[in-house]
């Protein structure tokens, strides 16, 4: 079975494809999104609950993984940073790739 993706590749896709392109974060470039910054903080990207749900759809599109059950329970969000999302995808992806 093929290797899934490296953690760095996953982070790049989350930032570029899901956050910047999908959510249309104008004037934000990939380097500006810190791996450990809280995506929902007012000082950061200040994403809202609707955008959080859209990230789940984005992950499903880009990585072909269903993270809905883990990432969202109702209106609560279990992952707050790019690192947390990427680590989970990395684990899930590699588990499926085995």
């Amino acid at each position: 079975m093929n290797r899934f993706m490296s953690l760095e590749e996953i982070k790049h896709l989350i930032k570029e494809e899901i956050l910047i392109n999908r959510l249309e974060l104008e004037d934000v470039i990939e380097n500006e999104i810190d791996d450990d910054e809280n995506l929902y903080n007012e000082e950061g990207l200040a994403l809202d609950s609707v955008e959080a749900l859209d990230i789940v759809d984005g992950i499903s599109n880009v990585f072909k993984l269903d993270v809905e059950a883990v990432m969202n329970s109702g209106e609560e969000n279990n992952f707050q940073t790019v690192n947390e999302i990427a680590n989970y995808i990395y684990k899930m992806g590699n588990r499926d790739a085995d």
Binding site: L23, V50, L53, D54, D57
Partner: peptide
Amino acid sequence: KDGFGKASGIYFP
């Protein structure tokens, strides 16, 4: 493009 199950939550409002 992606079907009803992937309707855009960010444009729905």
